[in-house]
Design a binder for these strands. Sequence first.
DNA 1: TGTACATCAGTGAACGCGCGTTCACTGATGTAC
DNA 2: TGTACATCAGTGAACGCGCGTTCACTGATGTAC
Lengths: 195, 195
Amino acid sequence: MSLRQGDTRQRIKREAVRLFVEHGVEAVSVRDIAAAVGMKPPNLYAHFASRDELVRELFAEGYAAYGERLLEAASISPIFSEQLAAMVRLICRLHDEDVVQFRFLLLSQHGGLAHVAQDDPKNPVGIVQEAISAAMVHGDIAVRDPALVAAMIVGAVIQVATFILYGRVQATMGAVEADLVAACAGLAGVKSSGA
Amino acid sequence: MSLRQGDTRQRIKREAVRLFVEHGVEAVSVRDIAAAVGMKPPNLYAHFASRDELVRELFAEGYAAYGERLLEAASISPIFSEQLAAMVRLICRLHDEDVVQFRFLLLSQHGGLAHVAQDDPKNPVGIVQEAISAAMVHGDIAVRDPALVAAMIVGAVIQVATFILYGRVQATMGAVEADLVAACAGLAGVKSSGA
DNA sequence: TGTACATCAGTGAACGCGCGTTCACTGATGTAC
DNA sequence: TGTACATCAGTGAACGCGCGTTCACTGATGTAC
């Protein structure tokens, strides 16, 4: 019994996700993906029913992976302000270390994938929103629409990341991490615990 | 002497911008635009050298119009906190009243137009950034990278607008205007002037 | 060990389609004498 | 007023291209007897 087929599937997915985040989903053709994997286009259809199915599978997995890492980061502490800080720091680190992984956050918000993304229960923004929601129930922060607060926080962070990506802000996410953590705490309405 | 040509140019631009914001720039074809205007595709080339030129002209004008309205809003007061509040309120109103005009802000940040957008001196984000920069020089707020602060503010606002657009936040921008004004003041580091 | 067959990742050639664009042409309107 | 010509917005037909996808086929590997 051979596992070759599974291996090839993985190789296709790895190359496809790389091309998608590098050039944008719409700009990458089936021929591009096949070439990157080192095969001919028709053979992709032995592994995926269609280009669309490949895209969907990739994004579902991307969200899940990102969401899990956010949950993991948040689990370090029962205190909301520390959870939020951990999540923001994680996003900063992912940006600096692995642009591919990071760009899922961007793509999940824009680029015609918004409708797909919003519906996915593991959407990274949804994870942040749930943490905020829990903090409100718990009485850690004032009760407002959690989606509104999540939007402001995520928006602020990924906009900065975008500016860094495009060179408009000349820094790394690591360098502005502390600023972002403080800003997000402010947006959430966390009482500043430091001096 | 007839001004028909100029009229037709305007009609093409009006329909094109409507289609672009409705479906995304990449998803709209020359044939779509021609059909919306009520002419055959080849005739578009009597008015624009190429599809690309039309897109560029449209976006340059969109940025300019948006930028001018932001400048106008900011000019109501010499006090930075009031300028910032006025700009945020303007964006909220533009969103609720004219989605077409508003979506330029979104498109200027994403969708493969990022490079074009960032270079335009009238880019709306650039206007916000300049106001922040001036406030720092003036000593109204702490000195940091103005692009960083502008990114956080604009990101927070347009992310909320995006969530409202997609129904994930169930509200109007008008309803969350006060929240956004307060949040942006906090992000900029303005001392809260109210009670 | 040798032969016959099944399996299956991968391929070459081609499909229909919609794209941006070109070009020779039309037909209404304006101007000159 | 009537005729000849210039102008120019708009059109029909077609172009080459890259797209996603299909399909009959290949050729290496594994299995049965």
